[in-house]
Design a protein around this nucleic acid. Structure first.
Lengths: 146, 146
DNA sequence: TGCTAAATGCAACAACGTTGCAATGGAGTC
DNA sequence: GACTCCATTGCAACGTTGTTGCATTTAGCA
């Protein structure tokens, strides 16, 4: 079940953050995007809709969203995607298609435990994991077959 | 068994790349570092030794090293570390200590297979994995206990 | 030693990200 | 609705990081 914009708004309010127009606009852009967006991407996309936001504001909003886990930063591209998993168990991971660039988020508690256990073998105490799988999504895989 | 500078030099030659003074200097700096270095870090460290390299050159050298797997880019910090695993099976992963910043590289074939299998459940065909565990290394863990 | 392609240096630029402070506006209260 | 307060935004200026094109140098080889 994917998280809706309304859910995000509720989380903002519940944590004592204001629901401002810029925040709603950024939520809207993230919601429609299929791929990670840089802060400047967000600015451009809003611009195309005739809306203007200062880039500093966008940076701050995206930082906030990440702190609240409403969005995540995808490391391999440096962009941001909205979180669709909510509080699902385990670290949130990404599958990134190298052909079309689309992102799919997933989580798996077992994988997290296995990863932490391996780290223990080195005396390392893992607190969370960043993980991105790179390859081909289902539809691009079919296309590359032919 | 950690990869030596000589091994890196041999790999450069074997692939038809020249073994230049700048490349040896960057290898030397990476070899001594305990943590990921940005290209500008490399430039500063060389500067402290009285050696000068243009930052563009450093970018190009680090890019080359990454292509040859002599070094890796650590995503969470954006810096580069030399690879100490060589051709060990499985994707090369990192454990990053949040306290002292040191890096430990490891690889585990089983974890890779499990990660790919999970992706298959979503119809995704993983080709490689980027993975960084964040937490406390053994010695920092002991310190935080007290 | 001389040759040549590969590698480096340089200059200019483009993109990305941050800081401090003044102006604005969301949300509660009257 | 009007008022108030403080979180939030806008603005300007700056700093860092990364890129491009072209002239110059140098590693490797004959």
């Amino acid at each position: 079940m994917s998280l809706m914009i309304q859910d995000s708004v509720r989380i903002l309010q519940a944590q004592g953050y204001k629901v401002t127009r810029p925040r709603k606009q950024v939520l809207g852009v993230l919601d429609q995007a299929q791929k990670p967006l840089s802060p400047y991407d967000v600015q451009r996309l809003l611009g195309e809709r005739g809306k203007y936001l200062n880039h500093v504001t966008i940076y701050r909003i995206l930082d906030l969203f990440c702190r609240l886990n409403l969005a995540h930063r995808v490391l391999s591209s440096g962009g941001f995607v909205k979180c669709i998993l909510g509080k699902k168990e385990g670290c949130h991971r990404f599958m990134v298609c190298r052909r079309c660039g689309t992102i799919q988020e997933f989580a798996d508690g077992g994988l997290c435990r296995e990863e932490s256990r391996l780290a223990e073998d080195f005396g390392f105490h893992a607190e969370y994991h960043l993980s991105e799988s790179y390859g081909l999504c289902a539809s691009c895989y079919r296309l590359e077959e032919s």
